[in-house]
Computed example of a mutant assay.
Amino acid sequence: MNNQNLAIKIKDLRNRKGYSQEQLAEESKLSLRTIQRIEKGESIPRGDTLIKLTQTLGVTPDDLLEWTDIEDKGYLTLLNLGALTVMIQPMLGIIIPLVMWILKREKIKYVDDTGKKLISFQITWALTLYLVLMIASKGSYLPINFSLLNSFTVLITEFSSIGIFIIFLYIYNLISIIINIKKSQKGLKNKYAPSIPFLK
């Protein structure tokens, strides 16, 4: 790991803990100047300094030194593909990407950004679907187990505007995922809209 990547990681970990540089220095029993030099990439913490710093930040020395911001277009593609489980069950379209995001959000470039956008989009999409279904059923039930197959059944048996809208929701979700898979393969940032930013 180069000094700059390490500096970024330490600063990120400090911010996650809610520490200022002064607080980190105080908690780790290191000088403020040492913390500033590490975060500027002017020095690499070693020995006792590394141990004090990692203990305060709640990580192991290996975790800190082995961290790299690698680029993995394959994992980004899989992350987006994980959302296709929405076709089986809407909650899966949230849960699968959420697990994948948690596992690699700090390890792979763009996973944090893509995961937040994708999960927020899928939550917004699921809420819209359930709201439409509750309106259609006049609030008589909460359709948690609804799936794409159910929506085709609704469309065929009732051929209503609700059925058409539900199919449209599924098609829009599918197209959004496909577009973002192609963006990931080209190394571009993903964009999912519209969505409520549940994860920031």
Rank of each mutant, 00 (worst) to 15 (best):
Y172G: 02
P61R: 04
N150F: 12
V132Y: 03
V132Q: 06
I171V: 15
K107I: 02
V99F: 13
M87S: 08
M1R: 09
Q23M: 15
D69G: 03
I10S: 01
I123K: 03
D72A: 10
E39K: 13
R37A: 12
Q23W: 06
L50K: 10
I44A: 03
T128C: 09
I181S: 00
T153A: 11
I51V: 14
L57C: 05
D48I: 06
D62L: 04
L169I: 04
G18F: 04
F121I: 03
N180W: 00
T128D: 04
S151R: 06
N5C: 00
F168N: 14
E22G: 06
N80H: 07
K116E: 05
T56A: 09
I177G: 01
G47I: 10
P197G: 12
L50V: 07
I119Y: 01
R37T: 07
I177P: 01
D48S: 15
K183Q: 04
F198V: 08
S195K: 08
E26W: 07
D72Q: 03
I178W: 05
E71R: 13
K73H: 12
Q185A: 05
I162T: 15
F121P: 00
L174D: 05
R16I: 13
I35P: 01
N80M: 08
Y141M: 10
K186H: 11
K189T: 07
T34N: 13
S151F: 04
I96R: 01
E106A: 04
Q55N: 14
K182Q: 13
T114G: 03
T85F: 14
G163W: 01
I181H: 00
Q21A: 09
A136C: 11
I156V: 10
T153G: 15
L199R: 10
I102W: 11
I119G: 00
P143Q: 07
T114Y: 04
I96K: 01
I10D: 02
